[in-house]
Amino acid sequence: MSAGWKYIVAVECFIFAMVLLAMGAVEVAHTGEWIYRSGSHEYIYDMVRHQPNYSYFIISTVLLSVSAVVIRRERKKQCVAKANERHEKEGAEYDGMLGKLTCEARKKIESGAGLSHKELLEWAAEMDRYEAKEIVLGIEKPLYRIKTGTDPEKWTEINGKMRRGQRIFHRAWTCAVENCPEEALATLEEALADLSDASAELGKITGR
């Protein structure tokens, strides 16, 4: 998507104003320091009397503020358009392997047979795959793409659920690696419940 003319002009103005501001800051500081070194006790009065060039400062501040507001508005428009554009391209496809492995793990835990260390590591590796495909591509990325255009409170609520789910999901991974299958199973179920809540809420907004 190409940037609009307003955006380009605003960015150019912003860069110009930035240079102007730098010059202004140095100019005023220079005059102030010179007056101080001259030994005057009426510092502020002297600053006015000697009239350091404040015009850099004033013009650049006004120009920066105006161009910043225009850039922000234009970027917001671009973000929403980009999010919709990318949403179509990227899909999170996952083969459901974690569900299968979790079912097997549950059966073995409930029967008292337990899981071997190798099986636990395979389970943890599948959790990693699930996170990359389902959590990051399926929830996190789309959620951040709609951040600018969504009600902040609603967005924070969904994000909170997703992040809590993600943290507990990581705990499930750690439990699996550390040979605690029962806690891994319990925390994984808790995490998936939070993540599916977040995904459902996100779906209501994006219409997916």
């Binding site: 605003a10 912003f14 104003a17 930035m18 501001l21 730098a22 202004g24 800051a25 140095v26 005023v28 500081a29 102030g32 320091e33 101080y36 070194r37 510092y43 400062f57 650049s60 501040t61 920066l64 503020s65 161009s67 910043a68 507001v69 850039i71 922000r72 970027r75 917001k76």
Partner: peptide, 23 residues
């Protein structure tokens, strides 16, 4: 010694503020 670069700090504040407004 009194040589505090107040205006240089203020210039930075203006830049940081407006940059954040620009996103």
């Amino acid at each position: 010694g009194g040589a505090v670069p107040y205006f240089t700090i203020l210039g930075g504040v203006v830049l940081g503020t407006t940059l954040s407004v620009a996103g």
